[in-house]
Amino acid sequence: MRARMCSGTLCLALVALLVAYDRVALATDAPERVVSMNLCTDQLAMMIAERGHLISVSYLARDPQASVMAAEAGTISINYGQAEEIFLLKPDLVLAGTYTTRTTVSLLRKLGFRVEEFAPADSLEDVRANIERMGKVLERPDVAQALIADFDRRLSAISVSDNQPHPTIAPYYANSYTSGRGTLVDAAIHAAGLSNVGAELGLRGTAKLPLELLVVSRPDLIMLGRRRASAPALAHEIFEHPVVQNLMQSTSAAIVPDRFLMCGTPHTASAVELLFDARAKHIVEQTQ
C-alpha cells in the first residue's frame, strides 16, 4: 500500500518533471507570445504558428473581403498596430510588414522587442520565400515546407506552354487602377496562361490605366475584384461609366476576390486557378 503510494508520488513527480522540461524546451525553441500587426503576416502566422502561440493579429485579419482567414482571426484578439497596445501584450516576437506602421516598428525595436519584418510578395517566388521564412522565425519549418509543397502542387496542375494561346486580360480596380509588371497579380496572370494588358503597356506596379487606353487595348478578359464597397465613393463610379459598362458586357469577366491576391499566401494559388478557369471558358467561347 505504502509502496504503491510511493510509486504514485514518483509518477506525479516524473510527470511534473516532464512538463517542466517540455516548458523549458518550448521556451528555448519557439516564440510563445507572437503578435502580428500586418494583414499578410497575420495570415501566414495563423497557418504556421502553433495553436495558442499567436496571441494577437491585426484588425484587418477579421475583414472577410481582405483576409482569407477571417473566421480563424475571430478566435484571436486583434490589435490596431499601435506601439502602446503591442507593448502591453508583452510579445516575445512581433511580426510586421516592411511598408506599414514604420514608426511603431522602430519604437518597438528601441524598447527591446524582437521585430521580424516581411516584405510584401510581388511574385510567386516571394510567396514561397515568405512562407519559408515564417516557418523559420516561428520555429516550425516542417509546417511551412508542407504549405509550400501544397502550393507548388496546385500551381503545377496548371501549366500552359508558350505556344498555347495567351488571351489578354486587364485587371481593373476602383479609380481605374490596374496591376502592371512586378506585382503579384501580374505573376498570377502569367501563371494562369494569360497576358496582362497593363504590363504590355509598360505599366509598373499598381498604376492608373486611363479609360481611353483600356478601350484601345481591347482586352479578351477583364479582371474584377468581388469587393463590395462598404460605403459609396467616387472611386467606384468608374464602373458605372457607359464605356466600362459596354466593355463589361462584351468582354468575359474573371472574378477574382481581392483577398486571394492582397497578400501572397498559399491561397494565392486559388487566384491562379480562378484565372485559369476564366481563360479556359474564354477559349471555349471563342471556338464556338
Binding site: A174, N175, S176, L211, A229, S230, A231, P232, A233, L234, A235, H236, E237, I238, E240, H241, P242, V243
Partner: peptide
C-alpha cells in the same frame, strides 16, 4: 468618417475639382 477607404482621398476632388472620366450621365 466614411467607412470606405477611398472616400478620404476624394476630399481633394471636392475641394479642387476635376473633369476626369466624367460621362454623359
Amino acid at each position: 468618417l466614411s467607412p470606405n477607404p477611398f472616400a478620404a482621398l476624394e476630399i481633394v476632388f471636392w475641394l479642387m475639382g476635376s473633369l476626369a472620366d466624367r460621362s454623359m450621365v
